[in-house]
Design a protein around this nucleic acid. Sequence first.
DNA 1: TTGAACTCCTAACAACCGTTAGTTTTATTA
DNA 2: TAATAAAACTAACGGTTGTTAGGAGTTCAA
Lengths: 196, 196
Amino acid sequence: MAKIKSSKNATKKETIVEKASKLFFEKGFSASSMRDLAERVGVEAASLYNHIRSKEELLQEICFKAAQHYTENIDAIEREDSPFIQKIEKILRFHIDQMINNYEVVQVVDRDWKHLSEPYLTNYHNERRAYRKRITAIVEEGIRRGEVKDIDAPTAVLIMLHAVSGIESWHRSVQKISAKDLEENILLILLRGLGK
Amino acid sequence: MAKIKSSKNATKKETIVEKASKLFFEKGFSASSMRDLAERVGVEAASLYNHIRSKEELLQEICFKAAQHYTENIDAIEREDSPFIQKIEKILRFHIDQMINNYEVVQVVDRDWKHLSEPYLTNYHNERRAYRKRITAIVEEGIRRGEVKDIDAPTAVLIMLHAVSGIESWHRSVQKISAKDLEENILLILLRGLGK
DNA sequence: TTGAACTCCTAACAACCGTTAGTTTTATTA
DNA sequence: TAATAAAACTAACGGTTGTTAGGAGTTCAA
């Protein structure tokens, strides 16, 4: 009999969520079927329901776990007592790191969170907005203290957050620079600009 | 009898493609059904097939028309004899303009082009890569001439292209700055950086 | 005024969807 | 080893999917 092999000491549910992240990343949430997923897990579709409640629960799991991860990071950064430009740099470095090492999840969340149903949809949407607001506050404080250029803070935030999502292309590129170089280049561009 | 009303002098097919762009933008290609689309067009689903060949043809239409638009723009910019930092600025301004005024199409293309089937998928993928390569060449020439900071050009390009896609959030935001201010802020950040 | 070309309609197809029911096999524990 | 729980299986459900067939109403040129 086929048995779900849980590598390491991961729960079978965790294994399913992990495979789902990869599948959703490749095909998108709506275009991924439970039979697709079951095949990758090595099991019949119906068997998945011994471990999860629904397809959407997988998406919820993915979205809210990622959100928690980001929230914990900004919690720590807010607590820090360092120059605000350095806080911004740390936020960027975290986003870049996530995009390099956890990009499947990040991309699924960014692309497919809209397929959550209520009340999760509203819930997630609020969390997202709150997160952006916290970053905006940091940028604004940086401007007030003269550490950051006098720009529209919300615009700066949306650029920061979206710029790093370009790393997706980096993953696919053939001759790619090292992750470290990538990180430094992105920071250089965002903090110092393209022009000389 | 219900009749497809083609406003202005648009073909009925063009009307359908336009409605499809909006629908795909809202729900994603895979989650959009032909019955959804038919309802928005004001017609039964089967009737759509008097004007189009398949659901995917709609996506093809949307993707390749957009690609052509971008290609024409960079054709013109390459022909220009101006400083390379200015060429980069013009590319950015074009992308920003598209994202502000044609964002539904742009977002659909960016998110759903992977749902094209062969040979369109490979075709589109190549066009996309070629387009990025042309921008990279401009950035590299800018670096060589000392107009642009000495950065990894492909990294710069992926940041440029993705940063502007953050404008999506701007559309949804409540108290938004003017489109002109948005454009100037984005250019300021990308060309001069966040830091002071 | 006839006939061809269009474009709409209803009805239906086969395939696939997420999910449930009921059963059998495997793993755990006593 | 026997009893119980966990997790797999097969089969099928009701619904939706993209698309086609065939017919009826409309438009327009001859």
